[in-house]
Simulated assay, not measured.
Amino acid sequence: MTTTPRARARAQTLADITRIGRDHLAADGAAALSLRAVARDLGVVSSAVYRYVKSRDELLTLLVVDAYTELGDEVDAAVDAAESPVEKFLALGRAVRKWGLSEPARYALLFGSPVPGYHAPAEQTTGPGTRVVVTLVSIFDAAFRSGQLTDRPSPSSLASLHGSFTEIRNELGTELPDEAIARGVSVWASLFGAVSFDVFDQYGADTFSSRDDLFEYQLACLIELAGLE
């Protein structure tokens, strides 16, 4: 489809606002974002920016979607280049950590403390925000279908969660049994917990001589938890 000059100009302005918003996010944090400051750096009056982004919350949503999209693109590219389910899982984990360490302010916007007064609109953020977990589920699903996911008895009852797991199966088009989904949720939470500890420097600067090796060990433990062969 051919775009009009007006549409191209609008897209470019939104790209510029996003770029400047990223810079302010890194320098000042999400709570201090200001459309007036963005307008100043863009070289226009604030009323001109309000034609594209009407409030601080809309700017935050723009940055949230932008960050989720970039993270999803990085993860998908890494996973697509791998072959076996184990290799794909390792690629996913490493891509999430690499992006988080290179973009700590944007990672914090997505996975850190909520911004006071801001509520992300689900209709705009759910799709981009679930890309990584959908890819993770697809890895486990492919392993299950090919017999590369170990079947293990549950250490505790999952009966109360059967309805929730059924909804997940229907929504994501997977045949993973309850136990496999429960393990997958644990892997998901543990992976992002490990990355968050690293990105937010919660280990302490001098606690470990090699955080890279620690993370590889954590990934190996998560492979075992998932039951990937």
Rank of each mutant, 00 (worst) to 15 (best):
A182S: 10
V134W: 05
P85K: 08
Y203C: 10
D28A: 08
A11W: 10
I139Y: 01
D41H: 15
E87D: 07
A220V: 02
I168P: 02
F89A: 00
D213E: 12
A81G: 04
L101G: 11
P85C: 06
P153I: 11
A95F: 01
R10F: 01
I181G: 02
G29T: 13
R152M: 09
A143C: 02
D66Y: 15
T166Y: 14
S146K: 10
E87F: 10
A159T: 13
S186G: 08
P85H: 07
R169W: 05
V195F: 02
Q124M: 02
D198Q: 07
G93E: 03
I168F: 08
D57V: 10
A37P: 00
V64N: 05
G173S: 08
K88N: 09
A122G: 12
T150Y: 05
R145G: 01
S209A: 15
G43M: 08
L109S: 03
Y217Q: 15
G184D: 00
V64P: 00
L63K: 04
Y107E: 05
A143H: 01
R145V: 07
R6S: 08
L63E: 00
S210P: 06
F111E: 05
R10I: 05
V187D: 03
C221A: 14
T135Y: 05
G117T: 12
Y107H: 10
V53D: 00
A67K: 03
A32W: 12
D76P: 05
L158F: 13
G117M: 05
